[in-house]
Amino acid sequence: MKTVAIIPARGGSKRLPGKNIRLLGGIPLIAHSILNAQKQNFIDGVYVSTDDAAIKTIALKYGAKVIDRPDSISGDFEPTVSALKHVLETVDDEVENVILLQPTNPLRPDNLLKEAFGIFQKGNHDSLFTVSRNHQKLGKIENNKFIPFNYMIGQRSQDLEPLYFENGLLYISKTSLVMNDIILCENAFPMEVTHPFGNIDIDTQEDFDYAEYLLNRK
C-alpha cells in the first residue's frame, strides 16, 4: 500500500495568468509543493495533474511524475476530486492514501505534512484537513442592515466564540473515498494550524505579493 501526493495544477488562471509557474522566492509556484512532498519519507510518489505544457515541463524538471489531465475534466467548474480520481485510475501502483497539495497554497510550516500524516494514521481517520481560526467579527447585510453573525454589538474580539476556516494547506484522504468522488468525509479530522502560512491562498496579485512578503520574512 502506498501514500502519494497529488498536486492538481491547471493552466487557465484568469485573475493571475500563469500563476502556477510564476517565480516565488526564485522557484516556480508549483515547485514549492513538489519539493515539500519530496522531503517526506512516507510519501511514495509525487504526481502533478495538469493540462498545461509549461506546467508539465516544470513539474518534470523538479522530479514530479506528470499525469496529463484530459480536457473533459479541466474546466473551470470541474471539482478537484476529478483530477485526483483520474490520477489514481491512471497509475499502476496500489494506493491507500492520497495527500492533496494545492499549488496555490505554496508555503507550509516545515513539519506540517509529517505531523498531519501522523495524526491521520494514529487516529485511523478516513480524511483530514487543515483549518485556521478566524478572529474577525462577521456578519451579513440584508436590506442595507448589517446583521452580526458570530458576535453581539459591543462584544470584545477576544471573547468571540472560536470559528475556523478551511485554509487549504493540505488534505489527506483514503483512496476509497476519492474513488467515490469524496475528499472529505463527514467525520474528517480538522487539524488546526496557527502559522501565518495558513492565510495564504494565491488567486490575485495581492495574494502573491503577500506570499512573497511572508517568505522573505521567513
Rank of each mutant, 00 (worst) to 15 (best):
Asn20Asp: 12
Leu160Ile: 01
Arg217Trp: 12
Ala37His: 10
Ile153Phe: 12
Phe149Leu: 08
Gly26Leu: 11
Ala53Val: 14
Ala188His: 07
Met179Val: 02
Asp209Phe: 06
Gly18Lys: 05
Tyr47Val: 00
Asp126Tyr: 08
Asn111Met: 11
Lys122Trp: 07
Asp68His: 07
Glu166Leu: 02
Leu214Met: 11
Leu60Ala: 13
Ala53Gln: 10
Gly45Tyr: 08
Pro8Ser: 06
Ser13Asp: 06
Asp110Val: 14
Leu163Cys: 04
Glu186Leu: 10
Lys218Asp: 14
Gly139Val: 03
Arg22Ser: 14
Leu84Phe: 06
Gln40His: 15
Leu60Ile: 15
Lys137Ile: 05
Leu88Gly: 01
Thr90Trp: 10
Leu23Ala: 14
Asn143Arg: 10
Ser72Glu: 13
Arg10Cys: 05
Val95Glu: 00
Phe197Val: 03
Ser13Ile: 00
Ala83Glu: 02
Ile200Ser: 00
Ile200Cys: 00
Asp159Asn: 07
Phe42Gln: 11
Glu212Cys: 12
Ile200His: 01
Pro109Cys: 14
Arg15Val: 08
Gln38Glu: 12
Gly25His: 10
Phe149Gln: 07
Gly154Arg: 11
Val48Trp: 02
Thr3Ile: 12
Asn199Arg: 05
Lys2Ile: 10
Ser176Val: 08
Tyr151Phe: 13
Pro106Ser: 14
Leu112Gln: 12
Lys174Ile: 08
Leu163Arg: 01
Ala31His: 11
Pro109Asp: 14
Arg108Lys: 14
Ala59Ser: 14
Gly123Met: 09
Val81Leu: 01
Gly26Phe: 12
Thr80Glu: 02
Lys114Met: 11
Met179Ser: 01
Pro148Cys: 08
Lys140Asn: 06
Thr3Phe: 07
Thr90Arg: 07
Gly63Ser: 14
Gln40Trp: 13
Asn150Ile: 05
Ala37Glu: 10
Lys174Pro: 03
Phe146Met: 03
Asp201Gly: 03
Asn167Glu: 05
Arg69Cys: 02
Glu212Ala: 10
Ile7Met: 14
Gly18Val: 15
His86Phe: 08
Ile34Thr: 11
Lys218Ser: 15
Gln155Ile: 05
Ala54Asn: 13
Pro70His: 06
Ile67Asp: 00
Glu78Lys: 08
Thr3Pro: 09
Ile153Pro: 05
Glu96Asn: 06
Val131Asp: 00
Val91Ala: 01
Asp159Val: 05
His32Gln: 15
Lys14His: 13
His86Asn: 08
Asn134Gln: 04
Tyr213Met: 09
Thr3Glu: 09
Ile21Leu: 11
Leu112Pro: 08
His135Val: 10
Asn180Val: 02
Asp201Arg: 03
Ile27Asp: 06
Val81His: 01
Arg10Ser: 04
Val178Cys: 00
Asp44Thr: 07
Asn124Phe: 05
Glu166Trp: 00
Glu206Asn: 07
His195Val: 10
Gln38Lys: 14
Ser176Glu: 12
